[in-house]
C-alpha cells in the first residue's frame, strides 16, 4: 500500500464534474422525453374529445326533432374531467406559464365552453334539470381564496353529480372567454361563480352555494337521483 498524498487531484475533480454534469443532463433529457410523450398523449385525447363534441353536436341536431330523452352527455363529461386532471399535471410539470401548456389550456377551455353551450341548449330544449356553474379563478397570488372556492365546488359536484361546473382562468387570453365576461358584465373581483345566469363575486361557502342552487333546482331530488344514477363530474381545479 503506497501512502497517499493529500494533494488535491484537480484532474479527477474535473472528470467528476463532467460526469456529474452528464448525469444531470441525462436527468433533464429523460424528463423532457416523458413530458413530450405526455403532451402528445394529451393532444391525442383532446383531438378525440373534439370529435366527441362534434358527434354530440351532430347527435343533438339529429335529435332536435326527436324526444330529448335519448341525449347522453355523461361520457363526454367524464372525458372532459379526465383531460382537466391531466392538464393540471402538465401544468405542474411544465410550469403554468409554459406556452405549450397555455395552448392546451386554451383548447381545453374552448371545449368546456362548447360543452356548456350544448348543455344550455339541451336544458332549454329538453327542459332538463341540469344546472351549470361557470367558475372563474386566477392564480394564488391574484386570488388567494380561489383554491378554497375550487375545493368547495368540487365537493358540491361530488354531492350533486348532475351539477356541471366549468372552470376558467380569468386571465386566459381567449376570445370566447372574453365574450362570456362581456355578456355577464363581469368585474375582475375573483373568484366569480356564475350559477345559470347570475354572477356571484367572492368566496361562497358550501351552504351559500347550496342556497343559491336551490333557487334553480330541487337539490333533494338531485340527491335522490344520485343514488340511482352514476356519472362523473367536470373539474373545478383552480390554479
Amino acid at each position: 500500500m503506497g501512502l497517499k498524498t493529500k494533494k488535491l487531484n484537480w484532474g479527477r475533480h474535473l472528470t467528476v464534474l463532467l460526469a456529474t454534469a452528464i448525469i444531470f443532463a441525462g436527468g433533464f433529457y429523460l424528463s423532457n422525453t416523458v413530458v413530450e410523450k405526455k403532451i402528445s398523449a394529451i393532444t391525442k385525447l383532446q383531438q378525440g374529445l373534439s370529435i366527441d363534441i362534434l358527434s354530440l353536436e351532430t347527435q343533438f341536431s339529429v335529435l332536435s326533432q326527436a324526444p330529448c330523452k335519448n341525449l347522453n352527455e355523461s361520457t363526454l363529461t367524464k372525458e372532459l374531467f379526465d383531460i382537466s386532471q391531466k392538464l393540471e399535471s402538465v401544468g405542474n410539470t411544465l410550469g403554468k406559464d409554459n406556452p405549450d401548456f397555455l395552448m392546451l389550456k386554451k383548447y381545453y377551455s374552448i371545449l368546456e365552453i362548447k360543452h356548456w353551450l350544448l348543455l344550455k341548449k339541451a336544458a332549454k330544449d329538453c327542459k332538463t334539470n341540469i344546472v351549470s356553474i361557470i367558475y372563474l379563478y386566477s392564480d394564488k397570488k391574484n386570488c388567494p381564496s380561489c383554491e378554497n372556492q375550487g375545493y368547495i365546488l368540487t365537493t358540491l359536484r361530488e354531492k350533486y353529480p348532475f351539477l356541471r361546473v366549468y372552470s376558467f382562468d380569468y386571465n386566459l387570453a381567449l376570445a370566447p372567454l372574453d365574450t362570456i365576461k362581456s355578456i355577464y358584465l363581469l368585474e375582475p373581483s375573483l373568484p366569480i361563480t356564475i350559477v345559470n345566469d347570475d354572477a356571484f363575486y367572492g368566496l361562497k361557502s358550501k351552504e351559500e352555494l347550496e342556497e343559491i342552487l336551490s333557487q334553480y333546482i330541487n337539490l333533494a331530488k338531485l340527491e335522490e337521483q344520485k343514488t340511482s344514477t352514476s356519472t362523473s363530474p367536470t373539474t373545478t381545479k383552480a390554479h
Binding site: 448525469i23 444531470f24 441525462g26 436527468g27 433533464f28 429523460l30 424528463s31 423532457n32 416523458v34 413530458v35 405526455k38 398523449a41 394529451i42 386532471q85 391531466k86 393540471e88 399535471s89 405542474n92 410539470t93
Partner: peptide, 18 residues
C-alpha cells in the same frame, strides 16, 4: 394513485431517482 400521465414529471424526479 393517478395514472402515469397525471404524475408531475420533472427533471427533479429523475435526478432524485438517480
Amino acid at each position: 394513485l393517478p395514472d402515469w400521465i397525471k404524475f408531475d414529471i420533472t427533471p427533479l424526479l429523475f435526478l432524485g431517482l438517480i
